[in-house]
Design a protein around this nucleic acid. Sequence first.
DNA 1: CGCCCGAACTGACCTGGATCAGTGCGCTTT
DNA 2: AAAGCGCACTGATCCAGGTCAGTTCGGGCG
Lengths: 249, 249
Amino acid sequence: MSTPRGRTTSHPYSDDGDEFHFCTTCAFSSACLSSGYDKAHLRELHVLVEHVGPYKEGEHIFREGDPFNVIAAVRSGTVKTYVTDNEGREQVLGFFLPGEVIGLSGISHGKYPCNAVALESVLLCRFSFPNIAALATRMPGLQQRLFALLSEDINKAALLAGNFTADERMAAFLVSLSRRYAARGLSARRFMVAMTRTDIANYLRLASETVSRVFRRFQDEGLLRVDRRDIELLDLEKLEELAKNVLRE
Amino acid sequence: MSTPRGRTTSHPYSDDGDEFHFCTTCAFSSACLSSGYDKAHLRELHVLVEHVGPYKEGEHIFREGDPFNVIAAVRSGTVKTYVTDNEGREQVLGFFLPGEVIGLSGISHGKYPCNAVALESVLLCRFSFPNIAALATRMPGLQQRLFALLSEDINKAALLAGNFTADERMAAFLVSLSRRYAARGLSARRFMVAMTRTDIANYLRLASETVSRVFRRFQDEGLLRVDRRDIELLDLEKLEELAKNVLRE
DNA sequence: CGCCCGAACTGACCTGGATCAGTGCGCTTT
DNA sequence: AAAGCGCACTGATCCAGGTCAGTTCGGGCG
């Protein structure tokens, strides 16, 4: 993983007596908080965290084939992962919002199988994977959390594999974004997306023209209001109804 | 996971002095063999294995929503995993041949997210997941192997997500089967598949009619010879060329 | 302020594969 | 051996979404 010219610091924390404060945007820290480990273990985990960034728009975090050594939780910004096929066409694999973890797919072969790029200014919490795996042998809760993250990604990857219509895909994409923003305390109804129409189209396996058309039709039907990157979901009910096959509900 | 009315036995092994024999079809045992652990650890792992089966054709191994507690390596036969959507249509998620591991996607939510059914007579090596996870905390090699299996499935799931043509999908499917059979010491050129055309179609997100047509066209073009479930690949080169976008080579 | 450039939008047309509507064929059942 | 059944195959037709060919818009810059 490449480190931007910004600062790299070990995780700042305060340890004022009994209370032990975590960076709340860090998925691992919070995972461990919830599994109720003792202070000594928590501190060990905490020491492994490096805050890196900012990566600026278009800057790569890792590239396909880079040796795998770290995973990272997004602290702020949006990360896109993608591969390019033999003809040079881009296939977007996923978008990662704050609180989500990138790099896990690199474990199996010791190399990242895809590229990760910042779509806007990005800050990361970075963890050495060997170190965190070693710590996991002493912290069953952490091991379990890692297993769960990996397993979840298997299920996520299967989502868009079905043969769904353009409408279903778009609705599922919007509902998923909405929920993920909401989970971070942001509005579930209105948000700014960091990706271009082309990125969205590549992710959903549609042509960018189709993305445009579906946006307009959804707007005509009163499901949403869209102005460039600014999206407001007006009829979340109906969007969820459209998305339910894709999201398996 | 449901257990068929067949025998369930703990893993038989012989421990004649220095030599310690493993069931060679068991993915975990071999994984641990290769990571070079000491005899005491190996025996611990070995004790966790249960041989179950046979499951007969059409019999379910687990169902969507069942509480997750075990993972299993296929010892013989073919397993299909699938989900059904709201309209009752089946979506095939994967086929598992001997040596491959089912159930991993159940980790994240404590329930299996899909159904697993035997397509022909199936024998399994079954492992309690809590037990194997506990053991993994004392065997970093085993933990690493579990991480790798999970991570690999993420990459596998992403494979068929792209927008590929029917020809590319079919070729990739055949080449993948060929390699997996070959890895088990069977012929890479000729094999009997356990799945119906409809299963193949559902897996590849095609109509079964399309699967039939592509089979015939491939046969007309001399790429293969197919007679019901019996498939012989005549031009592996060309099939691999067709498949390379899907398989990312 | 006007120019430039890339993203977004839009309409016209095309096509791969789905769908529909059969037919054929091997296996089981009786 | 005949009947019944389910899977496989095949031809005809249809349509969602891709492709192509522009046009519009907005933001950055000389």
